Measured scan of single mutants.
Amino acid sequence: ELKPWIEKTVKRVLGFSEPTVVTAALNCVGKGMDKKKAADHLKPFLDDSTLRFVDKLFEAVEEGRSSR
């Protein structure tokens, strides 16, 4: 259920769609990584945008959990 949101956010942050980043982000969430681990995992794909993306990712995960 997070996938469409992650795809949109990747496109907004990077300026283009990147399926590799979407898959990696879903893996981070699925494995229950904390922000630091997720950022380390995604840094090779996102460079300077990593922290901004990870912040948005974790906000969305929290919103998703609290709306259930």
Rank of each mutant, 00 (worst) to 15 (best):
E63A: 12
A25W: 00
G32W: 08
V10W: 00
D55S: 07
A60K: 14
E18C: 12
R68A: 14
K8E: 10
D48R: 10
R12W: 05
T23V: 08
A24Q: 11
C28E: 00
V61F: 09
A39I: 13
S17E: 10
K37H: 07
T20R: 12
V61Q: 05
L42W: 00
R68Q: 10
L57K: 05
K3G: 11
D47E: 13
T50P: 03
G64C: 14
P19W: 04
D40N: 06
P4T: 15
V61E: 03
F53P: 05
A24E: 14
L57R: 07
L57D: 06
F45W: 05
K8R: 09
K43D: 00
G30R: 15
V10N: 00
D40Y: 08
L51G: 14
V10S: 02
E59F: 04
P44T: 09
P19N: 06
R12S: 14
L46A: 04
L14A: 00
C28I: 11
V22M: 05
R12N: 12
R65S: 11
A38Q: 03
K37C: 11
T20I: 08
K3H: 03
V13C: 05
K56G: 09
V13K: 04
G30V: 15
R12D: 12
V61K: 02
N27I: 03
D48G: 12
G64H: 14
M33L: 10
K11W: 03
L2T: 04
L46K: 03
A24T: 09
L51A: 14
P44Q: 10
P4D: 15
A39G: 06
N27D: 14
P19Y: 01
L51S: 14
E7W: 03
T20D: 11
E18N: 15
V21H: 03
R12L: 11
K8L: 04
E59I: 06
R68N: 13
R68T: 11
V21F: 09
C28Y: 01
D47Y: 14
W5T: 14
K11L: 09
D34R: 02
L26T: 05
V13M: 13
D47S: 13
H41F: 12
G32C: 04
F53N: 03
T20K: 12
V10C: 12
K11V: 08
G30F: 11
R12M: 13
L2E: 01
I6E: 01
G30T: 15
G64Q: 11
S17P: 11
P44F: 01
K36Q: 10
A25R: 01
S49T: 09
K43F: 08
P44E: 09
A38V: 08
L14T: 02
L2H: 01
E18H: 14
D55T: 04
E59L: 07
E18Q: 10
T23E: 15
G64I: 15
D47G: 15
G30W: 13
A38D: 05
P19K: 08
R65A: 09
L42C: 02
D47W: 08
F16V: 08
E63S: 10
N27S: 11
S66F: 13
D34E: 05
G15M: 01
R68M: 12
R65Q: 10
K35Q: 02
K3W: 04
E63I: 09
R12A: 15
A60I: 10
V13N: 00
R12F: 07
F45H: 06
E62C: 08
E59Y: 07
F53I: 06
S17I: 15
W5M: 15
C28S: 02
V22H: 00
G64D: 13
A24Y: 01
M33P: 00
I6C: 04
L42F: 03
S67L: 10
T23S: 10
E18M: 06
N27R: 08
P19L: 02
W5L: 15
F58W: 10
L26N: 01
S17Y: 12
V10M: 13
T23F: 01
D55M: 00
G30L: 15
M33I: 01
N27E: 14
F45P: 02
I6W: 00
I6M: 05
A39K: 07
A38C: 12
G64L: 14
K37A: 14
D48N: 14
F53D: 00
T23R: 09
R12E: 15
F53A: 05
V10R: 00
P4I: 15
S49V: 09
S67W: 07
E62M: 04
C28H: 01
F53L: 04
E18R: 11
V21N: 00
K11H: 07
V21K: 03
D40I: 11
A25E: 14
L42R: 03
K8C: 03
K36L: 06
H41S: 11
V10L: 14
S17D: 09
W5P: 05
V10K: 02
V54F: 00
L51H: 14
K11E: 13
L42S: 03
K8M: 10
L46S: 04
L42M: 12
A60S: 07
S66T: 13
K3T: 06
L26M: 11
R52A: 14
G32N: 11
L2S: 01
K8N: 10
V61D: 08
R65W: 06
V10D: 02
V29E: 03
G32F: 05
K56S: 12
V21P: 03
V54R: 05
V54L: 01
L46C: 09
G64E: 13
K11Q: 13
E7L: 05
V13Y: 10
N27G: 04
K35S: 05
T50I: 03
F16R: 12
K36W: 04
E62G: 10
V22N: 04
K11G: 01
F16S: 12
A24W: 02
K36G: 08
G64M: 15
M33S: 03
H41T: 13
V29Y: 01
H41M: 11
T20N: 13
D34L: 05
D55G: 02
R68E: 13
T20E: 13
E1G: 05
A60M: 14
K11A: 10
M33E: 03
T50Q: 03
R52T: 14
L26Q: 07
D47I: 09
W5S: 11
V21D: 01
T50N: 12
L51Q: 15
S49N: 14
S49I: 12
T9M: 13
M33T: 04
E7N: 03
F45A: 06
P44A: 09
K43C: 02
L14R: 01
S66C: 12
A60N: 04
V61H: 03
D40R: 09
G15Y: 04
V29I: 12
V21I: 11
K43R: 13
E7S: 05
H41I: 10
T23H: 08
G30A: 15
P4V: 15
D34A: 05
F45M: 09
S66V: 11
R52L: 15
D48Q: 07
R52D: 15
T23G: 03
D47T: 13
T23Y: 08
R65P: 11
A38N: 00
R65N: 11
S66I: 10
R52G: 13
W5F: 15
S17Q: 09
I6Y: 01
D48V: 05
V22P: 03
T23Q: 15
A60F: 15
G30D: 14
L57A: 08
R12P: 00
F16A: 11
E59R: 08
D55H: 04
H41A: 13
R52S: 14
G64N: 13
L57W: 02
A39P: 00
T23K: 12
G32H: 08
K3E: 07
K11S: 08
R68L: 15
F45I: 12
S17T: 12
P19F: 00
E18A: 11
T20Y: 07
W5Q: 13
K56T: 08
E63W: 06
K3C: 02
V10A: 04
T9V: 10
M33G: 02
K8D: 05
E18L: 04
D55Q: 03
R68H: 06
K35M: 01
P4E: 15
S49A: 13
T9N: 06
E1I: 03
S49E: 11
V21C: 05
P44Y: 01
T9W: 03
E63M: 10
D40V: 08
E59A: 11
V61T: 13
M33A: 03
K36E: 11
F16K: 12
P4S: 15
V29S: 03
S17A: 14
G32R: 10
G30S: 15
F53H: 04
F16P: 00
V22A: 04
V13E: 10
L42K: 02
P4Y: 15
K56V: 10
I6V: 10
D40L: 07
K43S: 06
A38E: 02
G15D: 07
P19Q: 08
L26G: 03
T20A: 12
D47A: 15
L14I: 04
V61P: 07
E7Y: 05
R52C: 12
V22R: 02
V10F: 04
P4G: 15
D55V: 00
P4A: 15
V29L: 13
K3I: 10
K3L: 05
F53M: 04
D47P: 09
G32Y: 06
K8S: 09
K43I: 03
V54A: 06
F53V: 07
L26H: 04
P19C: 06
K37I: 06
